[in-house]
């Protein structure tokens, strides 16, 4: 099977700082899950942001299904993020003024052909055990519940790639394990490719591949 995501020779340096990425190569197939380990500040989140077209490298190529993501204009990259990629961050970043269901539907508001998004949102929320929390505000949920809502929001437009930036970082062990279970289940059920940045080797081992970012390169 050919790689859905293919990045090569990606390098990135922030102004007046040491290079963060110095030639990263990575291929991810559909449905594959990859864990990226590394010390704090080694560039894991930067790599994830570049993959998700939120940041741009100084050099290298990034192909998604053969499409050159780095050559996309602002409109195309926004569409790419909206339809092909789902993001889960360490903090949930839910909108406090919106209900659980509304938070999930936020990406669908700007998606094309998302007419059945509401039903899918309800299905997914039921799937993650939040069917009775649809009209709750984030302030009324626990940390684990909020992060589950964030996962459902990432999946609402049926992306093929899920990028998770330390999704369990703010959770306790039990919550972290539960969320990990959920992510792996979804990975299987939705045939979802997943790149997850984490500090936890224990959780990383549950993914298909484990890579370490060190000195700006994936090993």
């Amino acid at each position: 099977m050919s790689a859905m995501l293919k990045i090569s020779e990606i390098s990135k340096q922030y102004e007046e700082q040491a290079p963060v990425l110095t030639g990263v190569d990575l291929e991810v197939r559909a449905g594959e899950s990859v864990a990226v380990l590394g010390a704090s500040g080694c560039g894991k989140s930067t790599l994830l942001n570049i993959i998700g077209a939120l940041d741009w490298p100084d050099a290298g190529t990034l192909l998604f299904d053969g499409l050159d993501v780095l050559s996309m204009n602002e409109k195309q990259s926004a569409r790419f993020r909206n339809e092909e990629v789902g993001f889960v961050f360490q903090l949930h970043h839910l909108l406090p003024q919106c209900t659980v269901l509304e938070n999930v539907l936020v990406p669908a508001l700007v998606a094309s052909g998302a007419s059945d998004a509401k039903n899918r949102a309800k299905d997914l929320l039921q799937r993650v055990g939040l069917a009775d929390r649809l009209s709750h505000r984030p302030g009324q949920l626990s940390g684990g519940e909020r992060q589950r809502v964030a996962v459902v929001r990432a999946l609402i437009n049926q992306p093929r790639l899920l990028l998770a930036d330390e999704p369990t970082g703010a959770l306790n062990r039990e919550g972290a394990d539960s969320l990990m279970e959920l992510l792996l289940e979804l990975n299987q059920e939705e045939n979802l490719a997943m790149v997850m940045v984490t500090h936890s080797e224990r959780l990383a081992k549950r993914l298909d591949r484990v890579l370490t970012l060190e000195a700006g390169m994936l090993k």
Binding site: E74, F87, V106
Partner: peptide
């Protein structure tokens, strides 16, 4: 700003 960044992450364009 975090929410705005998130909206951008989930596909909201600057114009949007």
């Amino acid at each position: 700003r975090a929410e705005t960044a998130l909206l951008r992450a989930v596909g909201y364009r600057t114009a949007t």
